[in-house]
Write a protein that binds this DNA or RNA. Sequence first.
DNA 1: GCTCCCCTCTCTGTATACAAGAGATGGACA
DNA 2: TGTCCATCTCTTGTATACAGAGAGGGGAGC
Lengths: 231, 231
Amino acid sequence: MSDRIAASKTADKGATRADEVRLAIEEDIFLGRLRPGTRLDEESLAQRFNISRTPIREAILQLVHAGLVEKQPRQGAVVAPLKLHRMVQMFEVMSEIEGLCARYAARRMSEEEKQALKRLHDTSKAHMEARELDAYYAVNRAFHEAVQAGSHNEPLQEIARGLFARLAPYRRYQLNHPSRVKDSFTEHDDVVEAILAGDPEAAYTAMRRHVTIQIDIFTEFVSIMGGNEIQ
Amino acid sequence: MSDRIAASKTADKGATRADEVRLAIEEDIFLGRLRPGTRLDEESLAQRFNISRTPIREAILQLVHAGLVEKQPRQGAVVAPLKLHRMVQMFEVMSEIEGLCARYAARRMSEEEKQALKRLHDTSKAHMEARELDAYYAVNRAFHEAVQAGSHNEPLQEIARGLFARLAPYRRYQLNHPSRVKDSFTEHDDVVEAILAGDPEAAYTAMRRHVTIQIDIFTEFVSIMGGNEIQ
DNA sequence: GCTCCCCTCTCTGTATACAAGAGATGGACA
DNA sequence: TGTCCATCTCTTGTATACAGAGAGGGGAGC
């Protein structure tokens, strides 16, 4: 399994082993190979990546501060087992943060940025109509990132990215919902229209509603699954 | 200088050396003993705290992820030298985040929390009238933290704390401004009134304005100092 | 005299060895 | 048979040793 590092896409020149390990574990969490609650044993990880425990520890620390992993002194690290009420709170914040991004984007996006956003949106329409779920999901993410970048506020983007990363492990449950893709597209439509028109409040409202709806879907999913801790 | 760790206030049972070092460096940054741009040499720090480089490295990593320190692979760590435009962006986000906290607080604070907030506010009034600047500053921080806690949204509080930590090194410039304390108190007054009355939008507006004013003061300070990078 | 290249030296990144705490396990006693 | 305590083991935290990358200085060439 030590080929994992070599397989890492981001072979940055200056990157350290710790960075590579972090990316690999991050991906494992995102893709569900490492599920919330899973113990991260330093020694096993060291063997898996064929390196010493030192860079493993650094990688885990980075993940702890990204909120993806929890760690108690002398008691090891586990993939963050999100409590339901905390997830709802995170979605709540996410809706405000993304709404804020949209508001700023409506005011600050250049004409080029607006056209790029429009193109992304059109691409997603094609994927929707072709029922290409994975592709739609990918473009959906790019769409949100474009709006975040359009805010022209780096700290805000960092916050949005951080929240997205922490919610990502759970997001895969969402687009399975029947007709969700079509609704999602319609909501995006409102956002794009408001941003292109340069209407900050409409953009804020549209984006905030779009993300808020995800909370409903998520809680619905959870109520079906039962339990107040998702593992 | 190795007594620094022993002198640490938070002698938590489970805390590691790395945590203690992090707290110590954090305090140095907040109090201006370590100024933005200062190089953090692992070996010197290890000698200063009389421990090995390993926990020092972990502490630095934690500070990097808190945004207080910047680090390039193989080129060491420096206390984050904030660019002016980034600082303004951070204040911009901070005003929205704190406004959001106030909005939620107006809806969600219990009667006990509201009374505690009122008491804090009364205390700060006493300090203002007695012209006790440091005491006012301390209570001011407690006031903001109380509102944040009143939001009953942990991720939101974490974001607010993170931004506060990153802005703290520069905040000391602010309350020196003539009559700032009195204005600050008046603005707090509006916030308290709105929260006690349970008026979310008024609370949001009042808090947002309170923080936004700090941007003006800050940019004024910078324009006096000149330069677009603060060291 | 200036510039460019190479060497050296310092500091970071990684490996490995050691220490210490937390949980598990087994035995003894009630 | 159940519970409590001691010990033991396993994992994490820390120290130290080693390796390798960058930066800086000195010398050679132009």
